[in-house]
Measured scan of single mutants.
Amino acid sequence: MAEQVALSRTQVCGILREELFQGDAFHQSDTHIFIIMGASGDLAKKKIYPTIWWLFRDGLLPENTFIVGYARSRLTVADIRKQSEPFFKATPEEKLKLEDFFARNSYVAGQYDDAASYQRLNSHMNALHLGSQANRLFYLALPPTVYEAVTKNIHESCMSQIGWNRIIVEKPFGRDLQSSDRLSNHISSLFREDQIYRIDHYLGKEMVQNLMVLRFANRIFGPIWNRDNIACVILTFKEPFGTEGRGGYFDEFGIIRDVMQNHLLQMLCLVAMEKPASTNSDDVRDEKVKVLKCISEVQANNVVLGQYVGNPDGEGEATKGYLDDPTVPRGSTTATFAAVVLYVENERWDGVPFILRCGKALNERKAEVRLQFHDVAGDIFHQQCKRNELVIRVQPNEAVYTKMMTKKPGMFFNPEESELDLTYGNRYKNVKLPDAYERLILDVFCGSQMHFVRSDELREAWRIFTPLLHQIELEKPKPIPYIYGSRGPTEADELMKRVGFQYEGTYKWVNP
């Protein structure tokens, strides 16, 4: 592979701008107003304001973009700056750019259920340069409990009458099928589907988006991507930290609602779906819905739930269990780990287990898709061969690698495990991989909904998990304890083995 010439960040961002501006969906010269509902909250200060700053800094926003914060707290732009700027990672050389960014910011205080507050917000936006005809993007960085009041008031008082209007809704989209349907029906009564952007930030990850290209742009994968060759698929999300004093919020939802029903299920769809007619948003989402419709409700015998306990040999936070978090209700049975087996009941995947695993306070930070292939028929190497695996590593250190057998150097035919490896950090030294939120917010500006969740996708996802969630809430089974920093409950490994996964433990990928 030829040595790549190092590029400056300015040059890299210039390439990104060229890609972005050559499309006809990006209205570079139009006025846009980006409204952050819930501007005083954690999500706004840690993710949304920093993301908008990065896009502005790199010249990736339309030229005439204004940012308006809205929340109940009586704040000023200076207050917003004070709480969000520490997350910007701005350099001293960017000081003038930073001043320009905050000059485009404003803030309006108001209630979430008060019509007069929204009329005041609308008047404020109209007073901005060309504000009355601007395109408006409303980001709901809010708890779902206020979605209905907020969307109703936005629709009645704050819509642009000339430009387009788009609304970005953060997960969780309800707690179960019934609450999700209620919320979807409410929002759909106010906005068209092409105006609604239900954001799952995992769909903005580079390697998640790469799944489609790997599958449908490489001839070698087509013939082997089926039940005849693939023994099982494992989708993993692991965090090495616990709730760390923020367990009160987590306890309301648990690990299945927080990660599995959305992030992991979306990745499953991209692995299992048929080739779409095109890369058009609805063509892709149509195929994802077909996959979900082929999955039956989760069966309790295919589920393992766990909850982390303190590690007596650990240090600091590792010595504390979930129930030691003062914000967690006493005696909570909320799971911090889950392993679930699903089956896609169609011709391509009949009988292939899709194993979804996620948890907190585990032994490493990792998100990946792992396809394990069947054993080689007619073994001539005296059971020395391990199964081939194709691994798409989402985070950290984005990579695609194939675990395969090669001859060990020497005189004899002794096979050993090795890999074919594409590590993004080595291959793409001159490429700026956008943060997931950067990519998705740019998608909203461009009107691309491919990486957002459609209402029928959402409904099918909740259909699969709601009976299990209701059973857990009714019966309150005690989750299996696992030690902070471990791989999780051993019962999860036993479940995976029972459905056909072979864990060798003899080879570990190392970032080159």
Results as ranks from 00 to 15, higher is better:
184 S>P: 02
205 K>Y: 15
173 F>M: 05
157 S>M: 11
173 F>S: 10
123 S>A: 13
83 Q>A: 13
23 G>K: 09
169 V>D: 01
200 D>W: 02
64 N>A: 05
244 E>W: 08
221 F>M: 14
123 S>C: 04
52 I>S: 02
28 Q>N: 06
246 R>A: 11
163 G>S: 03
143 P>V: 06
24 D>T: 07
188 S>L: 08
67 I>S: 00
254 G>H: 03
153 N>V: 02
30 D>S: 08
26 F>K: 06
16 L>S: 05
167 I>M: 13
232 C>E: 06
237 F>N: 05
135 N>F: 01
106 S>L: 07
42 D>R: 10
56 F>P: 00
56 F>C: 02
199 I>L: 08
213 V>N: 13
124 H>I: 03
52 I>E: 00
90 A>G: 04
197 Y>N: 01
161 Q>P: 13
257 R>V: 09
71 A>Q: 02
53 W>N: 00
75 L>Q: 05
241 F>Y: 11
256 I>R: 01
99 E>N: 12
219 R>I: 10
162 I>D: 10
63 E>L: 08
139 Y>V: 05
190 L>W: 12
141 A>H: 04
154 I>G: 00
102 F>K: 01
227 R>D: 01
189 S>C: 04
120 R>D: 12
126 N>C: 08
201 H>W: 13
228 D>E: 14
216 F>N: 12
103 A>T: 09
247 G>L: 08
182 R>T: 09
4 Q>N: 07
109 A>W: 06
89 K>Y: 07
150 V>W: 00
13 C>Y: 10
127 A>E: 09
14 G>C: 08
230 I>E: 02
242 G>N: 08
27 H>L: 10
34 F>W: 05
102 F>H: 03
181 D>N: 08
156 E>W: 07
149 A>N: 08
197 Y>F: 07
52 I>Y: 07
9 R>P: 06
256 I>K: 01
128 L>M: 10
122 N>D: 12
221 F>H: 04
122 N>Q: 09
76 T>N: 08
31 T>E: 07
179 S>R: 05
82 K>C: 07
157 S>Y: 08
202 Y>I: 14
234 I>Q: 15
40 S>M: 07
196 I>P: 00
112 Y>K: 04
227 R>T: 09
152 K>P: 07
201 H>N: 14
212 M>N: 02
233 V>H: 01
257 R>C: 11
208 V>S: 14
205 K>V: 15
17 R>S: 08
4 Q>T: 05
18 E>C: 10
176 D>S: 09
98 L>T: 03
142 L>D: 07
121 L>Y: 00
231 A>E: 10
148 E>W: 14
85 E>T: 04
202 Y>R: 15
7 L>Q: 15
48 I>T: 04
125 M>P: 00
245 G>P: 09
93 E>D: 06
134 A>K: 04
109 A>E: 06
40 S>N: 04
131 G>C: 05
178 Q>K: 12
133 Q>A: 08
218 N>F: 00
225 W>C: 01
203 L>Y: 15
206 E>G: 09
21 F>D: 07
167 I>V: 09
110 G>H: 00
165 N>I: 03
51 T>V: 06
131 G>F: 03
165 N>K: 01
233 V>D: 04
118 Y>D: 00
207 M>D: 14
80 I>Q: 05
130 L>H: 07
157 S>W: 09
98 L>V: 09
205 K>E: 15
112 Y>H: 04
119 Q>E: 09
139 Y>G: 01
254 G>S: 06
230 I>F: 02
2 A>S: 10
256 I>G: 00
22 Q>A: 13
170 E>M: 04
137 L>G: 04
118 Y>V: 05
11 Q>C: 06
191 F>E: 00
179 S>N: 08
181 D>F: 06
62 P>D: 03
68 V>H: 00
90 A>T: 12
114 D>N: 08
25 A>V: 07
41 G>R: 11
229 N>W: 02
147 Y>G: 15
111 Q>A: 10
10 T>P: 05
21 F>S: 09
35 I>F: 01
76 T>P: 03
191 F>M: 05
88 F>Q: 03
203 L>A: 15
245 G>I: 10
83 Q>T: 10
17 R>A: 11
9 R>I: 04
15 I>V: 09
240 P>R: 07
51 T>W: 14
121 L>W: 00
73 S>M: 08
128 L>C: 03
77 V>I: 13
33 I>G: 02
190 L>D: 06
99 E>G: 09
50 P>H: 02
198 R>S: 03
226 N>Q: 05
178 Q>P: 08
236 T>A: 04
245 G>T: 07
234 I>P: 02
44 A>D: 00
135 N>C: 11
119 Q>A: 10
96 L>H: 11
117 S>Y: 15
84 S>L: 08
234 I>D: 13
87 F>M: 08
168 I>C: 05
183 L>Q: 11
166 R>A: 02
97 K>D: 03
245 G>H: 12
160 S>V: 08
198 R>G: 00
61 L>P: 01
48 I>S: 00
4 Q>D: 15
250 F>T: 05
61 L>C: 04
109 A>K: 10
114 D>M: 07
200 D>N: 15
152 K>V: 14
94 E>S: 04
117 S>V: 04
205 K>A: 14
210 N>D: 15
236 T>P: 02
166 R>T: 02
229 N>T: 12
142 L>H: 11
3 E>Y: 05
100 D>Y: 09
174 G>D: 05
62 P>T: 04
18 E>Q: 11
125 M>Q: 00
19 E>M: 05
54 W>L: 11
177 L>C: 11
202 Y>P: 15
232 C>M: 06
102 F>Y: 11
50 P>N: 03
224 I>N: 13
101 F>E: 00
170 E>V: 08
12 V>F: 13
30 D>I: 06
52 I>M: 06
218 N>W: 00
251 D>P: 05
104 R>E: 01
141 A>M: 02
50 P>T: 03
202 Y>W: 11
30 D>G: 10
207 M>N: 11
208 V>H: 13
248 G>Q: 13
118 Y>P: 00
129 H>G: 06
248 G>I: 14
217 A>P: 00
240 P>F: 09
172 P>E: 03
172 P>R: 03
36 I>Y: 00
36 I>F: 02
232 C>K: 13
69 G>Y: 00
191 F>A: 00
241 F>H: 12
83 Q>V: 09
25 A>C: 13
246 R>N: 13
83 Q>H: 06
51 T>G: 05
239 E>Q: 13
240 P>M: 10
200 D>F: 06
123 S>F: 05
130 L>A: 09
251 D>L: 00
154 I>Q: 00
36 I>P: 00
77 V>C: 09
78 A>D: 11
231 A>L: 04
27 H>T: 15
20 L>W: 09
190 L>T: 09
113 D>K: 06
186 H>S: 05
182 R>H: 09
155 H>W: 12
24 D>E: 12
43 L>C: 09
113 D>E: 08
17 R>L: 06
155 H>F: 08
204 G>D: 15
179 S>C: 04
29 S>N: 12
149 A>L: 11
83 Q>R: 14
2 A>L: 08
65 T>M: 10
62 P>S: 05
21 F>E: 05
180 S>R: 05
127 A>F: 09
214 L>E: 02
65 T>K: 00
173 F>G: 06
46 K>P: 00
185 N>R: 07
184 S>M: 08
49 Y>E: 00
53 W>K: 01
164 W>T: 04
